[in-house]
Amino acid sequence: MMWGSRRRRTSAAPLFVAATVAYGANCVLGTAVATRLVDTRNFRWLHHALYIATCATTAAALSSALWGRPRRVSRRAALALLPAAAPLAAIPYLGSRSIRHPLVALTAAPFVIAGLVRSRRTDRK
Rank of each mutant, 00 (worst) to 15 (best):
M2E: 10
M2L: 10
M2D: 15
W3P: 07
W3H: 13
R6V: 02
R7I: 12
R8A: 15
T10S: 15
T10N: 00
A12P: 00
A12N: 03
L15T: 01
F16T: 04
V17K: 05
A18P: 03
T20L: 13
V21W: 06
V21T: 12
V21P: 12
A22T: 14
Y23E: 03
Y23P: 03
Y23C: 05
A25R: 04
A25T: 08
N26E: 15
C27Y: 06
V28H: 01
V28F: 05
L29Q: 13
G30A: 07
T31W: 12
A32P: 02
T35A: 03
R36H: 13
L37D: 04
V38K: 03
T40I: 08
T40C: 08
R41K: 09
R41V: 06
F43N: 12
W45A: 08
H47W: 07
H47D: 09
Y51V: 11
Y51E: 13
Y51G: 14
Y51F: 15
I52M: 01
A53M: 07
A53L: 05
T54M: 15
T54Y: 11
T54I: 07
A56T: 04
T58D: 02
A59W: 15
A59H: 05
A60L: 14
A60R: 02
A61I: 01
A61H: 10
L62E: 05
S63W: 10
A65R: 13
A65E: 05
L66A: 13
W67E: 11
R69Q: 13
P70N: 06
R72M: 09
V73W: 11
V73L: 15
S74D: 07
R75G: 15
R76W: 12
R76D: 08
R76M: 14
A77L: 07
A78K: 02
L79T: 01
L79H: 10
L81I: 02
L81V: 08
L81W: 06
L82E: 00
P83A: 01
A85F: 04
A85M: 05
A86G: 12
A86K: 02
L88R: 10
I91V: 11
L94F: 08
G95M: 00
S96H: 09
S96K: 08
S96V: 14
R97V: 00
R97S: 11
I99E: 00
R100W: 14
H101F: 08
P102R: 05
L103Y: 03
V104E: 01
T107I: 09
T107C: 15
A108T: 07
P110D: 02
P110Q: 02
A114E: 03
G115A: 12
L116S: 04
R120V: 04
R121I: 05
D123K: 05
